[in-house]
Computed example of a mutant assay.
Amino acid sequence: MIIELIPSADETAADRLTDHLRSRGLHPWRGGEPSQLVLDPAPAPAVADELRALPEVADVISVPGKLRRTSRAYRSDTSIVELGNGTRIGGTEFVIAAGPCAVETATQLGTTAAAVHAAGARILRGGAYKPRTSPFSFQGLGTEGLRLLEAARAQTGLPVVTEVIEPADVEAVAASADIAQVGARNMQNFALLKELGRTRVPVLLKRGISATVDEWLLAAEYLLDGGNTSVILCERGIRSFDPSTRFTLDLSAIPVAKKLSHLPVIVDPSHAAGRVDLVAPLAKAAVGVGADGLIIDVHNDPATAACDAGQALTPEAFATLVNELRPILAAVGRPLATAATDEPATLASAVRA
């Protein structure tokens, strides 16, 4: 149960209400939102009605089950995450993020960013920090990668999504990026989730490779409990017994998550498949099951990619995919969100500078 305090309630009023609840044998705690108290287990309905009558209380929201702020019982309308360039994730428009899995060089990022911008991507993806299975694999450029992403954003106008892997790096990533990505390996890195919950940078939360939908949503609860309400879920495939693909894209998870939760859900077909030939069909399937967007690996020269070369689309293949998605999106009544029409032609040279 979540108790919403009246807007004018101060710390004294909240403390007074807390003391009153404890005198009734209840055990409230302060959530991430200063205007909220949480009760678990929830009291009887009659007690909830009594609480609503208290002068400090604006509303009492009963949320069944383990989910609290992610649940549609808490918020019935789909949440919309708004970015600085007018992009709205979770609304009617379908949003595509695209770019290299890892930021490698100014030329690589600049060329790719210009291409995805021209093809209709609304968000630029690129990894500055790369958690890798092997310690001998490319780990990313770190702060230099953040600098290159900032330059690419300045030239294209595209907001940036990039991964953060350590609580100590949250401040730097939040200062440079428009969306902080939590990768599949870190979905249950609770220290990282708590730190991101204290920020107000939007968070893209990828599903862990063996996580249930409930565990995925409970990870999102950490972010919302910290007060960060701008959370985007991302289905990126789960581990199965079949070695045909890198992971198995769980398309059923999208409508399940959207029924349970008000948070927007996007799909990563690139990491799910691990194969470039499957990215387009999986992306199209994601539209059909109700995803709010896609995040796709695109590299200007996939053969030379420092990581995940086998799943990266060329800029030409990405442009073809976007055009093939348009009639499918039209059929389900979701227009494609397109980028601003500023000229990105000089991006590569500008990033090098």
Rank of each mutant, 00 (worst) to 15 (best):
L5G: 04
A13V: 00
A14H: 01
D15E: 11
T18D: 00
D19P: 00
L21S: 01
R22K: 13
P28R: 00
W29P: 02
E33Y: 01
S35L: 04
L39Q: 01
E50D: 07
L54F: 00
P55F: 02
A58V: 03
A58W: 01
A58M: 02
D59Y: 00
S62Y: 11
K66T: 03
T70Q: 03
T70L: 03
S79W: 02
N85K: 11
R88W: 11
G91M: 12
V95K: 06
G99A: 10
G99D: 07
E104C: 04
L109F: 10
A113Q: 07
A114G: 14
A119D: 12
R122A: 15
L124V: 14
G126R: 07
T133C: 02
F136L: 13
E144W: 02
L148K: 09
L149Y: 10
T156M: 13
G157K: 12
E163I: 08
V164W: 03
E166L: 14
S176G: 04
Q181C: 08
V182I: 15
Q188H: 09
N189W: 05
A191F: 02
L192H: 10
K194H: 10
T199C: 12
R207V: 02
D214T: 01
L218E: 04
G226A: 05
I232C: 13
I238C: 06
S240T: 15
F247V: 08
L251I: 07
S252E: 11
V276K: 14
L278F: 02
L278Y: 04
A286Y: 09
A291G: 12
I295V: 15
A306L: 08
D308A: 13
A309F: 11
V322L: 15
A330E: 15
V332L: 06
G333P: 11
T338P: 05
A340R: 14
D342T: 15
L347T: 12
